[in-house]
Design a binder for these strands. Structure first.
Lengths: 126, 126
DNA sequence: TTATTATATCATTGAGTGCTGATGTAATGA
DNA sequence: TCATTACATCAGCACTCAATGATATAATAA
């Protein structure tokens, strides 16, 4: 069987959507980006405030913010010499909420998963 | 200001939850794993059927399935010499659905985001 | 038993990517 | 003007991790 029905092969559009979806999730799959998004759930913040909230370095945050902005997850707005960032869409909050619900049940499995270690962040050291 | 109020520092539990959440999203952030999860949305499949559905190699799929199982996103069940995999929770489907909705609006941004290229999968070649 | 099918595991390799430190730039204040 | 603040950008390093190919295991068939 070399080609069979073709039913199971992905169409070009489906493949593209798959890649977009993976890229979207990748925005949430890093502790630094995730902590930025979490910080912005409450209210818009400027970069300095995000530094305060996360404990990450300024350049690191700027890099991640650039990615999150490119990916359409956050938008920026100049105010004097401050740049305020906010989540672009309420469904980002929804996504995080569903993830939290899911996590509350499969947390044990995720906790035990050692195949892909999460990068050890410096989020509580100073 | 060296320590300030402490209000903005993450508690240990919050940090752990952050890492778990990032790890959860990481399960969805790879095109191979995502296509496996997508294939399982309809119905349980054995490994051979997943190979058919995704076009990925057997060892690659087995590796990803091991990760997804460890992370609690899929469960396996032996039937003779076949191993059937299924999604563990309906909220995985919900998460994918919310992501699709979100994507339909921010797709342009995600598409243009070139900071983190998604791994080019061999999903339509043979 | 031996052969075959179905799946899992492992080492290796190569590409991706997060973090830092330095520098650039733009806005405000003195 | 010069200094300072707020943020962005970039190069380089170190680490992670996805994919492959080979091998191992387990179940069935002959």
């Amino acid at each position: 069987m070399i080609h069979s029905t073709g039913e199971e092969m992905l169409l070009a559009g489906e493949k593209l959507e798959l890649e977009l979806k993976a890229k979207l999730f990748r925005g949430f799959s890093d502790t630094s980006r995730l902590s930025i998004l979490e910080a912005l759930r409450d209210k818009p913040l400027n970069v300095g405030e995000i530094v305060q909230a996360t404990g990450l370095s300024q350049s690191n945050i700027s890099n991640h913010l650039g990615c999150l902005r490119d990916c359409g997850l956050v938008t920026s707005e100049q105010e004097g010499r401050f740049t305020y960032y906010r989540l672009t869409d309420d469904r980002i909050d929804s996504l995080l909420r569903v993830a939290e619900e899911l996590l509350s049940d499969v947390a044990k499995g995720v906790y035990l998963c050692t195949r892909y270690e999460v990068a050890k962040g410096d989020n509580d050291g100073e």
